[in-house]
C-alpha cells in the first residue's frame, strides 16, 4: 500500500509583508487589506536569489532517509503546477537527479493539474512502485516553483504564490502514512487566465467550495471511513476563508485544519499539502492510527483529495 516514508519541507527565509509586495503584485491598498484581514495572509516567502534547482535541492536536502538509500530510488517525479517554467530544453529535474546521485532513476514531470499536481504525483509514484518488482524500491516526489511571471504570483482576490518546496520519499509497502484513497475531479470548463478574466474568476470563486467539498467527501467515502473519523485536514494554502467555507459546507471543524502556514508562506503551488503535513507532524498533531484528509485545488481546474492513515 503506497506510503509516505519521509517528507522534507523547505521554506525560504526571505519573508515579505504583503504591503511590501503591493507594487510588485499590482495590488491596491484595499486589496492588500482584504488579503490580510479577510483571507488571513500576512507574509509570503521567496527565494529571491535562488533558482528552481536551488529550491528543489533545499527540499531534498532535508530527507534523512534518502542518504544511503539512493540506489533504492527508481523514480523521481516532479509535481509542477505551471505547464512551462524554464526555457527548453533546460531540465532542472535532471540536474537534481545528478546532484543527488539519482541519475539511474526514471525521472519526469507531471503537470496540467496546477496546484493539485502534488497529489497526482504521489499517486503516480505509488502506481509505479506497485508495478515494480523490487518491494524495497522508492520514489522521490518533489515540488516547489518560482514566482517568475504574473500568472505564477497571484490568483486575484484568492491567493498569493510563494516559493516553498517539498520532497517526499514514497514506498509501496510502508507502514506509516498509508494512502487509503484518492479522488480527483477535472473541470476544464475553468480553462482561462483568472488574472485577466474577471467573469471566470468570479465563477471559479463561487463554485470552488462546492467542488472541493465534493472531492473531499468522496475521498473519505472511498477510504471507507466517516468524516468524524478524520483527525486532521491537511490543506493547500490558498487562504483561510475558503477553508472556513469548505468546512462549514462539509460539517468539519475548521480548528482541525492545518492553517498555520497560510499567514506565513503564501501558496506554494503543488507543495502545500506536503509542507502542511510536515507542520502537522512537527507540531505533534498526528498520532499513530489517525486518519487524515488532504485537499488541493488547481487552476484550470482540478480538485483533488486523499485520505491517509498515520
Amino acid at each position: 500500500m503506497t506510503a509516505i516514508e519521509e517528507v522534507s519541507a523547505y521554506l525560504p527565509p526571505d519573508r515579505r509583508a504583503l504591503e511590501e509586495l503591493a507594487d510588485w503584485l499590482g495590488l491596491t491598498e484595499r486589496q492588500v487589506r482584504l488579503f490580510r484581514r479577510f483571507h488571513g495572509l500576512s507574509e509570503v516567502c521567496y527565494d529571491q536569489d535562488g533558482t528552481l534547482l536551488d529550491l528543489l535541492l533545499a527540499a531534498t536536502g532535508g530527507l534523512e532517509t534518502l542518504r544511503g538509500n539512493e540506489h533504492r530510488v527508481r523514480y523521481v517525479v516532479y509535481a509542477r503546477g505551471m505547464p512551462a517554467a524554464v526555457p527548453y530544453p533546460h531540465n532542472p529535474l535532471r540536474e537534481l537527479c545528478v546532484k543527488l546521485g539519482l541519475d539511474h532513476a526514471l525521472s519526469f514531470t507531471v503537470t496540467h493539474q496546477a496546484c493539485a499536481t502534488g497529489l497526482l504525483a504521489f499517486d503516480v509514484a505509488g502506481r509505479l512502485l506497485a508495478g515494480d518488482p523490487d518491494p524495497d524500491a522508492l520514489a522521490l516526489v518533489v515540488s516547489g516553483e518560482k514566482t517568475f511571471t504574473p500568472d505564477a504570483r497571484l490568483v486575484p482576490e484568492t491567493a498569493i504564490f510563494g516559493e516553498g518546496a517539498a520532497a517526499v520519499l514514497v514506498s509501496a509497502n510502508g507502514s506509516s502514512d498509508r494512502l487509503l484513497s484518492y479522488t480527483t475531479s477535472i473541470r476544464g470548463d475553468f480553462d482561462g487566465r483568472l488574472i485577466i478574466d474577471q467573469a471566470l474568476a468570479a465563477r471559479f470563486q463561487y463554485e470552488y467550495p462546492a467542488l472541493l467539498s465534493e472531492v473531499l467527501l468522496a475521498a473519505v467515502d472511498q477510504a471507507g471511513v466517516a468524516l468524524d473519523d478524520i483527525a486532521l485536514l491537511v490543506p493547500h494554502n490558498v487562504n483561510a476563508v475558503s477553508w472556513r467555507r469548505v468546512c462549514k459546507r462539509i460539517g468539519y471543524p475548521v480548528e482541525r485544519v492545518v492553517l498555520d502556514n497560510v499567514p506565513l508562506t503564501g501558496h506554494s503551488f503543488a507543495a502545500d499539502p506536503f509542507l502542511n503535513y510536515r507542520t502537522a507532524l512537527d507540531t505533534g498533531r498526528l498520532r499513530p492510527g489517525d486518519r487524515y484528509l488532504v485537499g488541493a485545488a488547481g487552476l484550470g481546474a482540478t480538485f483533488s483529495a486523499m485520505v491517509f492513515e498515520h
Binding site: 516532479y78 505551471m82 525521472s107 500568472d151 476544464g188 480553462d191 484550470g300
Partner: peptide, 27 residues
C-alpha cells in the same frame, strides 16, 4: 499556450470528462 493546463482543458472536450494530466521533462 504556455500557461494552459491543456490536459484539463481537453478533459472538458472529451466524453466522460476524464481524469487528465501531462507528462514532460523526459524528452
Amino acid at each position: 499556450r504556455l500557461g494552459r493546463a491543456t490536459a484539463a482543458y481537453l478533459s472538458d472536450r472529451c466524453p466522460g470528462k476524464p481524469m487528465a494530466f501531462a507528462v514532460c521533462d523526459q524528452g
